[in-house]
Write a protein that binds this DNA or RNA. Structure first.
Lengths: 209, 209
DNA sequence: TGACACATACCGACCAGTTGGTATGTGTCA
DNA sequence: TGACACATACCAACTGGTCGGTATGTGTCA
């Protein structure tokens, strides 16, 4: 019937569909509560396809963490918070950007790897490592700006850029937990505001902006 | 053989043994990866005993969260950080106390309800609510000191005690996630130090102490 | 060009073990 | 005697994972 048109909807492939489905489902109910059958159903593929692409459920977990790293790093790389000329402004704009992301349902803004590592840190070292790499890798993208800001504002001897970068991630991860507990983003925005205030205080920048 | 001596080790009861076992196991592998059979084996009781005391695994989850609330509130109520006369000193001593608790294996210092709420916020509202109550209840114990400190140091119009109290919990929960990801407490101590520094900056207290 | 060899992607029935949960029995103590 | 605390035996549904098979490329060489 249809002519040569490559394909109705891009084939996407079972692997990609499974990975996309995994992000949503695992963020909603966690890794171990997510069954392979459920993943297949959501992705519209069969179990055979699943085990063709992933040698085990654990391997899917690792792949999902890596997929998450790629997806998010693209989002952050192209985000507008890199625009300001002042490095401290960029750091603060990052926090603002993270705050702006806190919209919609809790499962839409929370972090896949933060969720997965909670369940898997003792039972799967490869998942734990993939999650660690994702978090640390993202934190590392902040270090240069923090470092430059510390130099520019003369407090390089008072702060450790790597430590502060990781701390921003801790605050956000904790904010997600509170958001899950309270069923909404409000509390998370609150914590993000505290984080921003901390950074401003550290750099002696006044509240007004 | 043995005489009337009540019992070798206090009977404890299946319920208490199950609850104690639940704290340890759920903290290491999460709620859904923890099976009823495993819980029974660890507690040294049978499945019949389990379902005699808990109408479902979900009910055990709620009871475990409540048990956690009671256990931890006793720990904190009798802790020495309440001693200082100055309310700000008490708040800072609280953070120090939490930092001092960051010892041993990750599964020994992380938070049961923080772990559980991640997996259950969408699938079990009663577990979610029990976790929320645990976290918020603990945060509430900090409010009075924060509030008094804010008045004493003349910044009552600049901070919201409830919000700051909850933020301390967010930081700690996030620190636990990073500790799980990195496999050690060091990173968590780092974030706790940032939290302390934030509070000192908020209250205009110098770094020296 | 066409035929052969092989690879990749996927299907869906099937398996053994485990899951949460139930039904019924038994010992103990007031 | 009866209520309670637990034990034993069991079940249906589901779990992650395997397996034999097929359809569709893709590279190679005569």
């Amino acid at each position: 019937m249809d002519s040569i048109r490559p394909l109705p909807n891009p084939p996407a492939g079972a692997r990609a569909k499974l990975l996309d489905a995994a992000l949503g489902i695992i963020r909603t109910k966690g890794f171990s509560a997510t069954s392979v059958d459920e993943l297949c159903a959501a992705a519209g593929v069969t179990k055979g396809a699943f085990f063709h692409h992933f040698q085990s459920k654990e391997a899917l977990g690792v792949a999902a963490a890596n997929h998450w790293s790629i997806t998010t790093s693209e989002l952050f790389a192209t985000a507008p918070y890199h625009a300001p000329a002042d490095p401290l402004d960029r750091v603060l704009a990052y926090v603002d950007f993270r705050t702006a992301l806190l919209e919609g349902g809790v499962e839409e803004f929370t972090c896949l790897v933060g969720t997965m590592v909670q369940e898997s840190y003792q039972t799967s070292d490869i998942i734990r490592a993939a999650c660690e790499a994702s978090i640390s890798g993202h934190a590392a993208t902040l270090e240069a700006d923090i470092s430059a800001a510390a130099v520019k504002y003369g407090i390089a001897d008072q702060i450790d850029p790597a430590s502060l970068a990781l701390h921003t991630q801790a605050v956000l991860q904790g904010a997600f937990i509170l958001a899950k507990a309270k069923g909404g983003a409000d509390i998370a925005r609150d914590s993000a505001a505290h984080l921003k205030r901390y950074i401003m205080l550290l750099f002696n920048r006044g509240e007004a902006r």
